[in-house]
Design a protein around this nucleic acid. Structure first.
Lengths: 336, 336
DNA sequence: GGCACGTGGGCGAAGGCTTGG
DNA sequence: GCCAAGCCTTCGCCCACGTGC
């Protein structure tokens, strides 16, 4: 509605209207102490009347701060990364930061460097990395872009902070639950082994089994997709070497359940299945899936805690670990 | 590794090293024609040696362009919006733009205004809106922030461009498929009626039925979630008034399938089910879901076409419609 | 006059220094 | 010496104008 030809008001305009210098207006905006109450009120009135908003470009030119957090992410169409992003965005905007994103279509060093350069061109104040590949950390370490970095899903390093859900603990919860039910032959459908979580969950599974004196020799590797879960499920339905399967995520579990259903293998009567993630749909699988819940939004928010600490207080790198939680539904039961 | 104390090089530094004026460097960077080949090469060498990158803040201060697109989104953890965002991001970054996001946790006028103000503070060059609520368009119309806006999932208006998948067409495809199979009692599980797509799919369903001379009286409304699909499915399993159900999205279909499974209603033998979206998992439901595919990434990319046209050529508002596609799997068959 | 290049001013805000009470 | 408020320079870049050949 408003004429967009009219130049936007700037400090000077506010100052004129309030009958003070632009400097005083600047003080009011930035909450400097030495401004009289009367003057402050006059200035605030002028700001409101003109609808003044300060120019970010000019501000960051002189402060060398962009008030922007870059989020480098891959697999954003998946439940986990998407929700982590949401947590980051919420915390960032609440803290007065803008959130700039760069999505990686394929994950490799060049793509990561590209995205980081993209962010540096934008003078971001910090970078949150949601790229759950093992390769990421080493790529970041060798880059060192001069701004704080928080890597989600990793323990971080001496140059990079980390925030993660305790994956091994999650795997332990799943395996412990199965053991409790009386299972002793417990297989694992792992995620890709170039993913941090894929490795960690497999290790957790293996450790938990060995601690219980059970064999950890039934390991199959998928690619997180329902399709790979289905393919693996078809094999397992034929071999029937385990009475319980701990699956690396819920999507592969979905595929597994369908393969079992097709093959006439009943869940949980013949085989128990535990997933990982607890997506909103998992409670409506056939049967409803017992799984390990991760609070991704919380993870994202905690990331920003680390980030803000680093940017505003110069905190050194550190790590935050969020606990996972077992959600028991109907895909697990005692073995026949 | 590099000393981050050392000030970043600026135009002046490059100029000095190349033995020219800062102006000539600027010309080289901006591909102005009147620069001799020799000079251009010297300058490019200097840029490379110093690792010069131009300062975005300074640039946008004077050009009044931020090279940033704001993406206002809700439901980002869902498959559709997330993939639309990915398409936008890809096209934007390819075109040299930064992508800033603001996610809405709850959709209402205030939240929308808030986010738009957030973007204006950042001086974005344009705003892409991925908020599939009917309320969105009117809120945008009344705001008119002075930059181009593209609203995904709507036809736009005289102040706002639109890019959408043809929802009615998608509903027609689904219904036509069921009619072809011989169904005449075809129900619909709709999405919330304050969502553009929820309404459009219901209208498409209704139109297609009436054109075929069939009744459109079996309409139930869910909230897009698997849970609501489950609840509705339990009712339908008891009533058994239809031989086929067109469901507003794949998640509600999942819930419906489970309710039917529990109640002993066989799909597709007793009831056929068609979904909408074609998420990656839908092919692994029990049974694999016949559904209507939307290409969200393409939609996002096309959005940016409109946006870039508006920003760079001052194109007036317009609309892009993307065609949906029916994917036939095993949840549909002729009625018994 | 056209091409290759340089000079000076200004974009809007912030901060150090200053003056007046 | 304390508080309120103003002046001037600075950030890095682009643009409208030069100038000289």
């Amino acid at each position: 509605m408003a004429k967009s030809n009219a130049r936007l008001p700037r400090l000077e305009d506010v100052a004129e209207r309030a009958g003070v210098s632009h400097q005083t207006v600047s003080r009011v905006i930035n909450n400097h102490p030495n401004v009289s109450k009367r003057t402050r009120e006059r200035v605030e009135a002028a700001i409101a009347e003109l609808g003044y908003r300060r120019n970010t470009a000019a501000r960051s030119l002189v402060t060398r701060r962009s008030q922007t957090i870059g989020v480098l992410a891959s697999e954003l169409s998946q439940y986990g990364p998407a929700n982590t992003l949401l947590g980051v965005e919420q915390a960032a905007r609440d803290a007065g930061y803008f959130v700039s994103i760069a999505a990686l279509r394929t994950v490799n060093r060049d793509a990561i460097f590209d995205a980081i350069r993209h962010f540096l061109d934008q003078s971001v104040d910090g970078i949150v990395v949601i790229v759950p590949h093992a390769e990421t950390l080493s790529a970041l370490a060798e880059q060192s872009p001069g701004v704080p970095i928080v890597a989600v899903g990793s323990l971080g390093s001496d140059t990079v902070s980390g925030a993660m859900v305790d994956q091994k603990r999650g795997a332990e919860l799943a395996v412990a639950h199965l053991i409790e039910q009386g299972h002793s032959r417990i297989g694992h459908v792992a995620g890709p082994q170039d993913w941090i979580d894929g490795v960690a969950r497999a290790e957790g599974w293996s450790m938990a089994l060995r601690e219980a004196g059970l064999a950890d020799d039934l390991l199959l590797v998928g690619d997180w997709s329902a399709g790979s879960g289905y393919d693996i499920g078809r094999k397992l339905a034929v071999e029937r070497t385990a009475t319980a399967i701990f699956v690396g995520n819920d999507q592969m579990s979905l595929g597994l359940l369908r393969a079992f259903n097709e093959a006439g293998v009943r869940v949980p009567e013949d085989v128990s299945v535990v997933g990982f993630d607890d997506q909103p749909e998992s409670g409506y699988f056939i049967p409803p899936l017992t799984t390990v819940r991760q609070d991704f939004e919380e993870l994202g928010r905690r990331c920003m805690d680390l980030m803000l600490g680093a940017i505003e207080n110069g905190d050194t790198t550190s790590t935050i670990v969020v606990e996972p939680e077992l959600v028991v539904r109907r895909s697990t039961a005692a073995p026949a």
